[in-house]
């Protein structure tokens, strides 16, 4: 499979885990326009195999709508896991602030991935589309302007 095919295949799982990790609906995540880019970024830095294994572990139990069970599952099988935990935390940061942080050195030593992994911002829209802004009910400073004189009014933030 080409990288594009691999990623298209991983996309539904990536959206599902991202929704649980961030607390935003899949609809809201798609609405940022960053989904494919973030999946590609993460896969490029940690390798497709780590991503595929984490998504496999995530969907291993059929939890349905039980949020408490999902919380337990995430803590036990993903966030406490030596390989998946740092990746999951990186995804939370990526969605919220629009920056990919270099994975810890010992993670790369243990699990491989891209030797060129580095801190970076995947695209100029990653900052403006960060979940941080709707989470705190503010417009991203310096972006998404609301027009002359509107600073005097409360921010109007799209939250799906």
């Amino acid at each position: 499979m080409t990288p594009e095919q691999t990623q298209a295949d991983l996309l539904p799982g990536f959206l599902a885990i991202s929704s649980v990790l961030t607390g935003f609906s899949e609809h809201a995540l798609r609405g940022t326009g960053q989904t494919e880019l973030y999946l590609a970024t993460a896969c490029e830095m940690v390798g497709d195999d780590s991503m595929r294994m984490m998504l496999g572990a995530f969907s291993a139990c059929d939890i349905g709508d039980d949020t408490e069970a999902m919380g337990r599952h995430m803590r036990l099988c993903i966030l406490s896991h030596a390989r998946f935990g740092p990746l999951a935390r990186n995804l939370i940061k990526l969605w919220y602030i629009g920056t990919w942080h270099c994975m810890p050195r010992d993670w790369h030593e243990a699990f491989g991935g891209n030797p060129a992994d580095r801190d970076h911002i995947p695209s100029p829209t990653s900052y403006t589309e960060g979940l941080l802004w709707p989470a705190i009910g503010a417009n991203p400073p310096g972006a998404k302007p609301f027009g002359y004189g509107m600073w005097a009014n409360p921010p109007r933030v799209t939250r799906a």
Partner: peptide, 21 residues
């Protein structure tokens, strides 16, 4: 003034819809 503000908000809503299959 708030009507122009609405237009900027409408832009956000446009994008959100256009990114959903």
């Amino acid at each position: 003034i708030p009507a122009v503000g609405d237009m900027f908000h409408i832009k956000e809503l446009f994008h959100r819809l256009m990114r959903q299959s």
